[in-house]
């Protein structure tokens, strides 16, 4: 029996900036995961991944990552992905410094927006 498909987003790192980006439904790359396209169908996921991999001069390492439906868009299900929406936890740098809201649960910070 094959494993049930869990919802995904397409994520990558930006080629020049190196930071985390997500693919939107209207084919843009966003730095706010909430704007990403939440893909609930496996075939669509593969197509979207191919589309992302077809932009090797914009992004690096495009892959499908588990996500879930949040109140205002997709949220990560794993803490590693939550950190990618948040930046490092030892300094306010990266996404937070750019005024972006963290998505998902940042361990140790239980008040975080989910």
């Amino acid at each position: 029996m094959s494993r049930r498909f869990t919802p995904k987003v397409v994520s990558a790192n930006h080629l020049v900036e190196g930071d985390a980006v997500w693919l939107t439904a209207d084919d843009r790359w966003t730095r706010d995961m909430a704007e990403a396209e939440l893909i609930e169908d496996e075939a669509v996921a593969q197509l979207r991944l191919l589309f992302a991999k077809g932009q090797p001069n914009t992004v690096v390492g495009a892959e499908l990552v588990d996500a879930a439906k949040g109140t205002d868009g997709p949220v990560p299900t794993h803490f590693r992905e939550a950190f990618r929406t948040h930046g490092p936890t030892n300094y306010v740098l990266g996404k937070r410094a750019q005024g972006l809201r963290s998505r998902g649960k940042i361990p140790g910070n239980e008040t975080q927006n989910v």
């Binding site: 190196g18 930071d19 985390a20 690096v60 590693r80 950190f83 990618r84 930046g87 740098l93 990266g94």
Partner: peptide, 16 residues
């Protein structure tokens, strides 16, 4: 990738 690694440049979680 191998060329950048030869020059000590990695791609990490949030940046190079």
């Amino acid at each position: 990738r191998p060329l950048r690694l030869m020059n000590g440049l990695y791609l990490q979680l949030h940046a190079y």
